[in-house]
Design a protein around this nucleic acid. Sequence first.
RNA 1: GGCGGCGUAGCCAAGCGGUAAGGCAGAGGUCUGCAAAACCUUUAUACGGCGGUUCAAUCCCGCCCGCCGCCUCCA
Length: 487
Amino acid sequence: MAVTISLYNSLSRQSEPFRPQEEGVVKMYVCGVTVYDDCHLGHARSQMVFDTLHRLFLETGLTVRYVRNITDIDDKIIRKAAEAGVPIEEITRTYIDSFSRDMARLGILPPLHEPRATEFLSSMIALIDRLLQLGAAYRAGGDVYFRVRSFDGYGALSHQVLGELRSGARIEPGEAKEDPLDFVLWKGAKPGEPCYPAPFGSGRPGWHIECSAMSLHYLGPTLDLHGGGMDLLFPHHENERAQSEAATGKTFARTWMHNGFVTTSQTKMSKSLGNTRRIRAFFEDSPFPEAVTREWLRYFFLGTHYRGPVDFTDGGLAAAKNALDGLHQCRALLFERLLSLPEETDPREGPLLQSFMEALASDLDTPVALSVLHGAKSRINPWLSSPTAGDPPVDPREVRALFRLAERTLGILSTPASLWVGGDKSENGGKAGSELTPEEIERLVLSREEARKAKDFKRADALRDELRAAGIVLEDQPGGSPRIRRI
RNA sequence: GGCGGCGUAGCCAAGCGGUAAGGCAGAGGUCUGCAAAACCUUUAUACGGCGGUUCAAUCCCGCCCGCCGCCUCCA
């Protein structure tokens, strides 16, 4: 569907129409993770934001060359390995696996390339060499530093004035920087630490250089879009930009996007504060099957615009689940009603589809996109719930197409109805949602049915209460046996 | 100290110059043996405060108050 995508660019601090350099192809780079621990919900949101953007690009027919790095050489990894007394590779393998599992659980579409820093040492060394030749970098005390004041545009991305920066105001003991603002490109080897040979002395790369080297390798000197969390804006992205542009003389990234934080009690969720919630734990603690939990979390995050903060609360989570339940209920009834009509002939265009796409195209306004879904639901529901009703106020087939569109772009409304309402973890290889065995449940349900037939409502209600206490809710249906729902 | 974000109904959350989307919760109703679920109806003279610009401001400007973030590793 033809829409003009506009995105907020951190560089210009305004929304701009998004136009890739090459017609029909998007070169997109997003900062991944450093693999020294399990990922938390902050990572989940960030990846979800850029996944949604990725899906939006695909939906509009663009080819997306999406690269996301994995940082597998870093001080924290080294320290963790040393503490555990295991090789670095064991730590990185463990957390790369964990990250991959988390991304799969969240339903994040895989990027085209997912390079690891250690696979690109020679590219990084070449880049540093080039910066040294250009005079943008210098050797000092076994390290190599980037000379920040040699790069005119430094600070333009994060809108910092060099003189006001406190960042570099500290020089760590042992560092030999010319200027406090300078940052390390290559750290000289220290005893007992992993190191790699380089013309300027063996050692290991600084944090920022990997992104420059890997994006250059896969996507060339100029990215259409570079993304990451708000906390990467400075210094990470500022540094990446400086060293890349100093080396290539070209614009490094045309659009920069930064997502807001996940907070708890209005405070940023971060590892150093110890207030993180791991993705894995969220899924393991969830009473629902994985597919349901995935949609639940996605819906929760998508309910807030990506640039704002999201406070992670039980109330917010509960509201998200209830709202999603309503959408699923509608979807299940609608799909059943339209079963005989092939989806292939559903409309490709229409006011609902248009509104939905326009919302997403407008700097990824997912809250508005969700409201389009709810709007469609409330207009189609009366028709769905009364079989004798006349013409529906909206084309049911467009609503079906809309739900499919939401499935593709937002990654919600894809779980089969049977799993959504009646599912529990046992169907999913997890723990059971109830203390009762299926046989016990069936026995209680049948007993209640007998009691109801005998008009012994007191006993019937007691049995229903007993089931409810075990997390089983009965929903009587006209004619048939009651529907069993787990809570 | 520098840079930035936020403050909209009980809660969450869009809108960002033309007179307040949506969701959750709540209330009333339909259905039901009673429930539950579902469906219907309903819920902000009003957008932190005070000024200013304008025919018109929640949206622009100024000041103030309150939260939060970046400037050190961090999505």
